[in-house]
Amino acid sequence: MSTLEIKDLHVSVKTEEGDKEILKGVNLTVNSGEVHAIMGPNGSGKSTLAYSIAGHPKYDVTSGTVTLDGVDILSMTVDQRARAGLFLAMQYPVEVPGVSVANFLRTAKTAIDGEAPKLRTWVKDVNEALERVTLDKEFAQRSVNEGFSGGEKKRHEIAQLELLNPKFAVLDETDSGLDIDALRVVSDGVNRYSTQGDRGVLLITHYTRILQYIKPDYVHVFVAGRLAESGGRELADQLEAEGYDKYVKAAAQA
């Protein structure tokens, strides 16, 4: 069993007006086998949490800890974190011109596993992973995310999730901008991953829509840079009915 533990995490970004604190003391523990949904309004710092865990250079951790099975990951480089077992599915996957999906996936798999995947089975694995997210296998020959539609980019993220099979997956608004068919394909992929039983999911979303397809064990309300409330699935139903207003007002008064 693995544990991803976030303790009193404070994160700032540099702006023209100086450093601005976005995360103001986040506490969260995700164990393997669990699916946590983090829900919050725009600008609450949800994406900052995702990128800070992954190690994006734009975000400056000013205090607090993030550990994976007790090991500090904040001192690791971005790639070391990935090799330690973290995966971030991005809201806006980056286009990398001239680098084919096939080459990218093989290089990533080799880096994660510490050895090159077996040629005989790898091509088949890639084709199947693409097929499961309804991407044609010709996508393997295209440049990474270049010219992909929004939905294709998201499905490509999920294909990577399944091929790299990390210990913990952070999904940053993977549901945004998807039509209902794509949402189902993406959700199926996340469910295949999580039902392995020994993987943890941190699902960041603005909408409750995806929770019809992915059933979280825990739901957290994220407002103004910290968790405002935590509960079970019923909390999502309450948010669906009432929205974030109550929490936003409370945070503004605090």
Binding site: T77, F87, P93, F104
Partner: peptide, 11 residues
Amino acid sequence: LFYLQSRGIAE
């Protein structure tokens, strides 16, 4: 670089 590194690929 961030995207590639986030998939485990060294800098």
